[in-house]
Design a protein around this nucleic acid. Structure first.
Length: 294
DNA sequence: CGTTACCCCTGGAGGC
DNA sequence: TGCCTCCAGGGGTAAC
């Protein structure tokens, strides 16, 4: 079995952009140009209901493209018969995972309690599991998937050419809220969740409590760089863990094994030794070093 | 319009 | 041991 996340446990890290990117690359070799024979929906309601029409909608289509937008995985499903092309949208929520089960039928591997969706190909089955059911599996009819209501209002990709310190500085200009919840706002910038928001701010030396509009241009440059570096390192680490997993069949490790601040409340800052603080912002835990971050 | 509280859900941890 | 409570969080929505 080839797992994207270890099959017997949930990912220890909530899927953010790096995790989704790695899953995207991980499933591409198995799915690209594959023909969907059928689909099995066991849990009709995740974050939103999966339409019961989905199996019939998908059967017979060919997966021609697999890409990521924010934390959504997008599978382009070519037209079959009279029907127009469409896209399958998958969001892993905070506990979702995808596994590739080589073999001819989903019934070859009995589904567990949290295995909600199977996509059956001639060479194997793509299985979606999500214990906490914050995930999404949805269908977008037609070619223009970026116009889908789930995607239309998403913000800029952190690896887009236009994303840099200048872009951040301009986006922050109207935001008087603390920078950390602004960073996590997917309508502004996608892919940066609770873990990488705290880590990026630490690396940039910026306090998560500082109002976004009060961050000088030079520090926005540093923040944009930190965001990209943090995400890129996690993608690289994730890619490594997937390769190890495929070869060794061990558990896929967490991508951020050496967080500077996340979940390190009370522990010594790795740079200055001061105790890491934990506070609550917009209902989420924030971790930071009061000495290194200003 | 910007910002925040709340809700969805389950499993794991800690208290008693 | 077992039960209860709390906590984790992406993102949509309602409320302020």
């Amino acid at each position: 079995m080839v797992g994207i996340f270890s099959d017997r446990n949930k990912p220890s890290i909530v899927p953010e952009l790096p995790e989704v990117e790695v899953v995207c690359c991980g499933i591409r070799p198995f799915l690209e140009n594959g023909i969907i024979r059928g689909a099995v929906i066991r849990t009709p309601r995740l974050r939103q209901p999966i339409l019961p029409i989905l199996p019939q909608t998908l059967a017979g289509r060919t997966v021609t493209e697999i890409r990521r937008r924010g934390k959504y995985l997008l599978l382009r499903c070519a037209a079959a018969g009279e029907r127009e092309p469409g896209w399958l949208l998958i969001h892993l929520g905070m506990s979702g995972s995808l596994r590739w089960l080589p073999g001819r039928s989903a019934t070859d591997s009995l589904p567990g309690r949290h295995d909600h969706v199977d996509l059956e190909f001639s060479s194997g089955v793509l299985r979606f599991a999500d214990p906490r059911r914050f995930g999404v599996v949805a269908w977008h009819a037609g070619e223009d998937v970026d116009a889908d209501p789930l995607l239309a209002s998403l913000g800029i990709e952190p690896f887009a050419d236009e994303f840099d310190g200048h872009w951040l500085h301009a986006a922050f200009a109207t935001r008087q809220a603390a920078v950390k919840p602004v960073l996590m706002d997917a309508h502004t910038l996608v892919g940066v969740g609770n873990i990488y928001a705290s880590e990026s701010l630490f690396r940039a030396g910026i306090s998560p409590l500082r109002p976004a509009r009060n961050i000088a241009a030079r520090r926005c440059d540093r923040l944009a760089t930190s965001i990209r570096e943090t995400l890129a390192e996690a993608i690289e680490a994730g890619g490594s863990s997937i390769r190890d997993y495929v070869h060794a069949d061990g558990g896929a490790g967490c991508f951020q094994v050496n967080c500077f601040v996340y979940e390190r409340a009370g522990q010594d800052c790795r740079i200055c030794g001061h105790a890491i603080r934990q506070v609550r912002q917009a209902g989420r835990s924030t971790y930071y070093c009061p000495v290194c971050q200003r």
